[in-house]
């Protein structure tokens, strides 16, 4: 119950835009979880005529194979949510652990970890993702792993510098002089201090991962089995004559709107969170 109260207080402190953003993210989450009931039509096999305009049967029309686009949007939400939150959690948790460890141990370990983060930050991520995808096969799992491999440095750096400053605090020095070990310090003193910071960076990573997955899928290099929003766009753009007909009005506009809504919604939340938590401190 304590946490529910905390969350309620947190929501109250969001601006109007932040609340709208939270609403949109929850809506997409709802779409993703209940897509089996919401979709009405299957997302991978035809359920009507090809290229039907939006109407009563097919709310957002159909594509060139007669597959319902609303169903594709619903199931695409699953991929975006899975990739976004999966990557963010993996990179957030992994990056924080590395950051705590690096900041706590200092010395050579710290130096090595920092050199490693420098290296990953310099690597151009999109070409690298394309190469890895081409060689290891573009499944959703691989995309999450590769994105996480490129994202862990952000939480690591934030967490490390926070741990370094917390280590200087009097109460931590006192705890250390009483013989507090790594685990005790981490659970009692480091985690409460770094958790808000990690949350902010996890939100940022989520939207980055969603955009990266959509970009890869748009290039036709994403998971070919999953119907993600980027893949719908890829099919639509590669349809001959998409530019000279009216089909783009539902076939192209729907996935673009979905991606933009989700990404801007997350951006609104993350800006509010940064303001509330004050990441610079």
């Amino acid at each position: 119950m304590k946490y529910v109260k905390h969350i309620m207080i947190g929501i109250k402190r969001l601006t109007v835009l932040g609340k709208i953003g939270l609403g949109v993210v929850l809506m997409v989450l709802f779409l993703a979880v209940f897509s089996d009931w919401l979709a009405l039509h299957p997302y991978s096999i035809p359920s009507g005529d090809a290229l039907e305009a939006p109407g009563a049967g097919h709310w957002l029309g159909t594509d060139d194979l007669g597959i319902d686009i609303w169903a594709q949007i619903c199931f695409g939400a699953r991929i975006s949510i899975l990739v976004g939150f999966g990557t963010a959690l993996l990179a957030g948790i992994g990056g924080s652990i590395i950051g705590i460890f690096s900041g706590y141990s200092g010395g050579l370990t710290d130096k090595l970890v920092m050199r490693l983060t420098d290296l990953v930050i310099v690597l151009p991520d999109l070409p690298m993702m394309i190469v890895l995808g081409a060689f290891f096969g573009p499944s959703v799992r691989n995309i999450i792993i590769v994105l996480a491999l490129f994202s862990w440095t952000i939480p690591t750096r934030i967490v490390r510098s926070k741990v370094l400053s917390v280590k200087q605090e009097k109460y931590v020095e006192a705890a250390m002089s009483y013989g507090a070990g790594f685990w005790h310090l981490t659970l009692r003193h480091f985690l409460p201090n770094i958790l808000p910071l990690v949350m902010v960076s996890v939100i940022r990573l989520t939207s980055r991962a969603i955009v990266a997955e959509a970009s890869l899928a748009f290039l036709g290099l994403g998971d070919p089995i999953s119907k993600s929003w980027g893949l719908i766009l890829n099919h639509a753009i590669n349809f001959k004559g998409i530019y000279f007909t009216d089909y783009w009005k539902w076939w192209v506009v729907s996935p673009i709107t979905a991606i933009m809504l989700l990404v801007t919604a997350i951006a609104f939340i993350s800006r509010d969170m940064e303001r509330i938590i004050n990441t610079k401190a």
Binding site: S215, L233, Y243, I256, V263
Partner: peptide, 16 residues
């Protein structure tokens, strides 16, 4: 607001 929108989406909108 515009810098939040991914590049390729802006491109597709211009294209259409």
């Amino acid at each position: 607001a515009i810098s939040e929108i991914p590049a390729f989406l802006i491109g597709i909108m211009f294209l259409f």
